[in-house]
Design a protein around this nucleic acid. Structure first.
Lengths: 119, 119, 119, 119
DNA sequence: GTGGTCTAGACCACG
DNA sequence: GTGGTCTAGACCACG
C-alpha cells in the first residue's frame, strides 16, 4: 500500500498517514493481521521523521486499528467491540458536508451515490 | 440564529462560526439577502474577539456565501454558479467517514439515513 | 500541585506526569475545571522538554481527564460516561500485586486497609 | 502450569513469564520445591527465545522466588524472611489503580471484592 | 532490528 | 502566549 502525503493539506502528516491506513483497512488493501511497514521503513520511504510515523502508529494503536509487537512490528488488528454507530464528530462533519453540498446544488441522490461508492 | 461555540473543540472558533452560518443558510434559518449581525455585535454577544468573527466573515465572503457592503454590513448572498459537485476536500473527508463507520460496523443504510436526515 | 519525577523509575516521564495528575484529580487536589500549568511552564519548572509534557497532556486529553482550550490552556474535565468498572489492565495488575503481597506474608486485611486509605 | 503470552502486551515477555510464575506460586499451582521446566524446554514449548526465559528465571531468582541448581535445575523456593509489607512500588501502583477506578465510578466495595477474589 | 522515549530547537495557527 | 507539529539526532529495552 502506498501512502501519499499532501504537503499543502491542513491535515497534519501523522493524521494523513493514520487516515490512509484506516481507509486501506476498510478497503481491504490491508488485510487483517497483515504487517505494516516498520516505523523506520515508512519514515525513510516517505522522507519524513520517524517520530511522525510513530505518532501515527500510536494513534492507530490507541484507536484499536493496529497492534504492535516487539518482534514483528505493527499489524492490522481485528476490530472487535464494534459500536455500530457513527461517532458524534463524524456526524457533525457529515452534516456540514451535506449542507455545503446542498448549497452547491448537489442532489441527495448524488450524495447517496458517493456513500455507495465509498462503502 | 444562535451560534454555539465549543471552546474545547479541535475546530478553530472562526471555523465553527463559519460552519454554523453555512448550515444556517442551508437549513433556511438564514434567508437569502438577510442581514447578518455586525462583526462587533456578534463578537460582543458571543464574548469573543472581533478578529475571530472578522476572520469567519472574510472566509464566508471569499467562499461566496455572503456579501459585505460598507453601508449595509454583511448579507447572505444568493449563490449563483452552483457547481453541482461535492468539493474534492469534502469527498476525501466523506471517504474517511465512510471507512471509519464501516469498520465500526455501521451499515450502508444507516449512513444513507443520516444523509437523508441532514439533507 | 507539585509533580515529582523519579528519574530511576522504569515508568516514562510523560506517564509519571499523567499518573500524578490523575491521582491529583482523584484526591481532589485538582478540582474540576481547574487550570493546569501550561505545557511550557510545567516543562520549565520540571526541567524537561515541552514535547514530553505535551505527550502527557495529550494522553490525558485522549483519556477524557482534561480538556484543552486554545486560549486558556488545559483544564480538568468533568468525567462523564463513567464505566463503573475496573479496567481489564488494572484487574491484571491488581491480581499480580495481590499475589506478590500474599507471598510476602501480607494479610488480606492489610491490603483492604490500603484500598481504604487510597480511596 | 501453562504460561500464556500476549505478544501485543506492553509488558515484556520475560516479565509476563515472571508474573505468571509468581501468580502460580501464590495460587498453589506451583508447590514449594516443585521443579520448573528447564529454560530450553520452556522456550521450546512457548516458541520463544531461550534468552527471554533465562531472563525471567534470573529475575525470579534475584527476587527469591526460585532457586537454581546446576544439577536439579530451577525449583520453587520456600520464601523465608517475609517482610509482611506491600512493596513501595506496588503501593504506588495500587494508589494509581484506586484513583483511576474511583474516577471511573467504581465503589470502594467493588475494589475490596476484587482483593477478596484474588487473595 | 524493532518500537519507545527524550531532547533541543524551530515554526505554525489561533486568538 | 497558547498548544500542536515536525525535524534531526540520540539512547534504550526487548528479543
Amino acid at each position: 500500500m502506498i501512502i501519499k502525503i499532501d504537503d499543502y493539506s491542513d491535515i497534519p502528516i501523522y493524521m494523513q498517514i493514520r487516515d490512509q491506513i484506516v481507509m486501506g483497512i476498510s478497503a481491504g488493501k490491508l488485510q487483517e493481521g497483515e504487517q505494516l511497514p516498520t516505523v523506520r521503513a515508512l519514515a525513510n520511504e516517505m522522507g519524513i521523521n520517524t517520530m511522525t510515523v510513530s505518532k501515527a502508529y500510536q494513534l492507530l494503536k490507541s484507536e484499536g486499528y493496529i497492534l504492535t509487537d516487539r518482534k514483528k512490528g505493527a499489524r492490522v488488528r481485528k476490530k472487535k467491540d464494534k459500536s455500530g454507530l457513527v461517532s458524534p464528530e463524524n456526524k457533525k462533519t457529515l452534516k456540514r458536508i451535506v449542507s455545503e453540498s446542498r448549497l452547491e446544488g448537489v442532489s441527495k441522490e448524488d450524495l447517496i451515490k458517493l456513500i455507495d461508492e465509498y462503502y
